[in-house]
Design a protein around this nucleic acid. Structure first.
Lengths: 194, 194
DNA sequence: GTCTATAGGCAGATAGAC
DNA sequence: GTCTATCTGCCTATAGAC
């Protein structure tokens, strides 16, 4: 009972996270849904429209998921671990974070899509900033200076860990995931109070 | 007095670092050199051949640059800073690290190119491992456990910092660079002995 | 909403002249 | 080594029937 638009976005998201936004066509999408290429243009006139809808929905879904993490996690540490676990999940599902993929494609993306990508990262950083502040107040984390800056470091590390595991994933999925986990565990150790 | 092959690789590298390997064509290359598309196939029969040559040369050039860093730097800290500075340079020149770009394109790349990308990252990690071991021995760095694992963290962080600055770079180059520098300075602080 | 048909352009690649 | 000419195929996108 999901609409064609939603199913199109689901298929587009999977393809974009695996291959990149520029590396799938309306035909790829059409084949997956069992319709023809022309049918898609009814829902998304231009590919840029699809791109904008894609990243906007992704941002909403991630925001919801993080709210759920806030609700269920018992501590700032758990919230941060929940965040990191969602990246590991993506790796298991052969999906790069959509933000990471679109960030690398920045130069070739329509302007509206580019600005959505920036908003997406800004939202992640805002959430991370709150978690880090809460964790520092509670004595769970130790770091110097502004929580905003530490949030930028967290985001850089998790994105970089996922990206550098990505080429390895194609040939050795288990090692790639282990590598990601090791890197992030190491990072978390550095955040622990001494 | 540089050969056409070299000039082709120069142009291809610039385009690949800005737009991605799949986002430039033989025609783009041809236009930049003032020749025609067909002429390129004499030097590189298939695009995969160009890709392999591109990343292989890049790996050699980076290896040379790091050897030069080893030669001129006075300490492990300086060597690590030299490494990080080369990423900042790329950002200033509107170029993403070629490894980062190709890593994100992994799934769509010819197998031979994929394995070159993995070798490239392995070489960086080997170099970083040596620097970290030297620095720890000399008392410049403090970290627990294997230097190999710490090297993976360093690489993840610097790649992620560059990638997350990339979308911002298109609209606010100065802030993007500042952001990269802030993140990496923060990381270096965490490596300092207390 | 989805179809068929088609336009117009660009991709990688090849043959053969010079 | 580089050219012209050309092939084949895929891309985004549109018009108009159902």
């Amino acid at each position: 009972m999901t609409s064609t638009s939603e199913r199109l976005l689901d298929a587009a998201q999977a393809l974009a996270q695996q291959r990149g936004f520029n590396a799938f066509s309306f035909r790829d999408l059409a084949n997956r849904l069992g319709i023809t290429n022309a049918g898609i243009h009814y829902h998304f006139p231009k590919k840029a429209d699809l791109g904008r809808a894609l990243i906007a929905r992704y941002r909403r879904n991630v925001a919801e998921a993080l709210t759920e993490v806030d609700r269920t996690a018992g501590s700032a540490t758990d919230r941060l671990k929940g965040f990191i676990a969602s990246y590991a999940d993506g790796l298991r599902k052969e999906r790069l974070c959509l933000g990471v993929m679109l960030a690398s494609e920045t130069v070739t993306l329509p302007d509206e899509v580019q600005s959505e990508v920036r908003s997406f990262f800004a939202a992640l950083e805002d959430w991370l900033t709150r978690v880090l502040e809460d964790g520092r107040t509670a004595g769970e984390f130790h770091f110097e200076g502004a929580a905003e800056d530490e949030a930028a470091l967290v985001l850089s590390t998790v994105e970089g860990a996922m990206l550098s595991a990505w080429p390895l994933r194609s040939v050795k999925p288990v090692q790639a995931l282990a590598r990601f986990e090791t890197v992030m565990q190491r990072f978390l150790n550095g955040l622990a109070p001494s």
